[in-house]
């Protein structure tokens, strides 16, 4: 028995080596480097993060962009899933498949698609000019508003994919029972449906939030290093040829990583809670 368990362990070993070499070791080095300057231990990099108004601004921009894009995507998909329920299950599965296809559409290709639509000579930019709607034709894709539109795009399929099973768990019997007892549809959702789904919605929000906090490619493609976001800051500090400050980049990355872990734990916890409810 023991030898057989040992033999089995041989199959797990390469996996453990890979995880150690390419996940644990890099993250450890990042943490160590965030606490070190040339000679030894320092808290200086964290102090710099917390006192640099520029870096703090980056965090603030990332947090608002992530939270706003997550909330808008949540609201749109909540209603869209509700409307989707009128279709038969095969049709709904097809819609989900198509939405999964668009979830691959992110990063650089997505940024480019928005340039085609809303860039300086974009389809809609020209259309708004033609119609003489100046307030819209002067819209800049390379600003906070433009980034928000792109971020909402890549949040939508993820939000749909996460909300659909939660919504699916609301059973028809509960609606029937509530209706039989005299509740209106609105009352059902306010008193039963939404409270049951709430932990799941919170969990979905935190996944979406984390998803946007870590996003880099689309913002980089649209604004280069000009728009101040945490992920962009890290990239710039890492790759800048003259001004490369990898230790400072490490400190920012550690703080971002902690944010991510908190968001993921929150979503794990609330998804478990939803499963218990359903």
């Amino acid at each position: 028995m023991l030898t057989s368990k040992k033999q089995l362990f041989v199959w797990i070993l390469p996996f453990l080596v890979l995880v150690t070499l390419f996940f644990i070791v890099p993250l450890l080095y990042m943490v160590i480097s965030s606490f070190s300057n040339g000679d030894g231990f320092t808290l200086g990099h964290y102090q710099e993060v917390l006192t640099s108004s520029y870096i703090l601004q980056g965090f603030k921009n990332s947090i608002t962009l992530s939270a706003v894009s997550a909330i808008i995507a949540l609201i749109v998909t909540l209603f869209a899933v509700y409307a989707m329920m009128r279709f038969s299950e095969p049709v709904r599965e097809r819609i989900l498949m198509v939405s999964n296809l668009t979830s691959n559409f992110s990063g650089i290709p997505l940024a480019f698609a928005f340039i085609v639509l809303l860039g300086n000579s974009g389809l809609f930019t020209l259309l708004f000019e033609k119609w003489g709607i100046d307030s819209l034709s002067s819209f800049s894709l390379y600003s906070w508003g433009g980034l928000l539109l792109v971020y909402i795009y890549f949040q939508l399929p993820l939000s749909l994919m996460l909300l659909y099973p939660i919504y699916y768990g609301i059973q028809q019997q509960w609606k029937d029972a509530a209706a039989l007892l005299g509740a209106s549809t609105f009352q059902f959702w306010r008193k039963i449906g939404v409270p049951i789904m709430l932990p799941g919605i919170v969990g979905t929000f935190s996944v979406l939030f984390a998803n946007a906090m870590g996003a880099y490619a689309s913002a980089y493609a649209l604004t280069g290093s000009n728009y101040n976001l945490v992920a962009i800051r890290i990239g710039a500090l890492l790759s800048g040829d003259i001004f490369a400050q990898p230790e400072l980049a490490s400190a920012i990355a550690v703080i971002l990583g902690v944010t991510m872990i908190i968001a993921m734990l929150l979503s794990e916890w609330s998804i478990k809670k939803t499963r218990r409810n359903l």
């Binding site: 995880v19 390419f22 996940f23 070791v25 890099p26 993250l27 450890l28 080095y29 990042m30 160590i32 480097s33 984390a210 906090m213 870590g214 996003a215 880099y216 992920a231 890290i234 990239g235 890492l238 990898p246 980049a249 490490s250 990355a253 971002l256 990583g257 991510m260 872990i261 968001a263 993921m264 794990e268």
Partner: peptide, 22 residues
């Protein structure tokens, strides 16, 4: 747990770690 951790860390964080380590 490993799946959640891997999912939680975006490329930009892993890029920092890789460069520092290797």
């Amino acid at each position: 747990a490993a799946v959640v951790m891997v999912y939680a860390f975006p490329g930009v964080i892993l890029a920092v770690g890789l460069i520092r380590a290797y």
